[in-house]
């Protein structure tokens, strides 16, 4: 059974069709890259998987570990192991990273029927993750993404992923706007996360990230459908030739 299975997914936003029949199967232990030109529906796919309001699923299904998650709220999906790294992470002044992460970790623990971690244990764990993503020690006290640079925001998404340990991580253009150092930090974080028990879907414009995080499968999304799938070589070819040749 695939960890993630998307079948014939049709999605509209404000009555406008965006996704026109997506089929995708992601197994545990795999990294899939989804590439495609602007407006092809990449971010819509990522957001629909996370259950973001405002997207109307017209047809098709999304299952995680065999369970249809189509009617689940964003928090229920998260508690079942789905994680979305946002393309534009939200700034929440006044709520510290510590509070935010602890609330999330507590919710996940309770959903598993476990005691939430003690504050001391949690801080230890969060500090380790913060160090891995090269945040200053005061990171936990700062407001969530408040005044963060673009790179810091993306690193924070990866940090949240490492702490929540999802089954499936969907990373929506986490590489965009990163300088080469930040890209390396983010890639190291993703590689540290990779395991036989989980899977990663990378939504990206460029193949640059794929030099660091080597995907098992590459899919090209265009006009709301997956028009081509291949291995890592496809990404290299796209970089060389652009998306135009796929129309032929």
């Amino acid at each position: 059974m695939s960890l993630l299975r998307v079948e014939d997914l049709h999605v509209e936003v404000d009555g406008k069709p965006i996704l026109a029949g997506i089929d995708l199967a992601v197994d545990a232990g795999e990294v899939h890259a989804i590439m495609g030109p602007n407006g092809s529906g990449k971010s819509t796919l990522a957001n629909v998987l996370a259950g973001r309001p405002g997207y109307d699923v017209i047809r098709g299904s999304v299952t995680v570990d065999g369970e249809d998650v189509g009617t689940l709220s964003p928090e229920e999906r998260s508690l079942r192991g789905l994680f979305l790294a946002f393309q534009y992470p939200i700034e929440i002044p006044g709520v510290s990273n510590m509070e935010f992460l602890k609330a999330a970790v507590d919710a996940h623990a309770l959903a598993r029927g476990e005691e939430p971690p003690s504050a001391v244990d949690f801080v230890k764990r969060a500090r380790v993750a913060a160090m891995r993503l090269q945040f200053d020690p005061d990171f936990l006290k700062r407001g969530v993404n408040d005044g963060f640079s673009g790179g810091e925001k993306k690193r924070n998404e990866i940090l949240q992923m490492l702490i929540l340990e999802p089954r499936l991580a969907v990373l929506d253009e986490t590489d965009s706007g990163l300088d080469i150092d930040a890209l390396q930090i983010v890639a190291d974080g993703i590689n540290a996360f990779r395991a036989n028990s989980n899977a990663v879907v990378l939504v990206t414009h460029y193949q640059r990230l794929l030099n660091y995080v080597v995907p098992d499968h590459v899919h090209v999304l265009a006009g709301g459908r997956i028009v081509h799938s291949g291995d890592r070589g496809l990404a290299l070819e796209l970089e060389e030739r652009g998306y135009g040749w796929l129309d032929d």
């Binding site: 996370a50 259950g51 973001r52 309001p53 709220s73 964003p74 928090e75 999906r77 998260s78 508690l79 994680f83 979305l84 946002f86 992470p89 939200i90 929440i92 935010f100 609330a103 999330a104 919710a107 996940h108 959903a111 949240q160 929540l164």
Partner: peptide
């Protein structure tokens, strides 16, 4: 929504 996608 951001909070909710983290399970809150």
């Amino acid at each position: 929504n951001y909070f909710r996608t983290r399970g809150i």
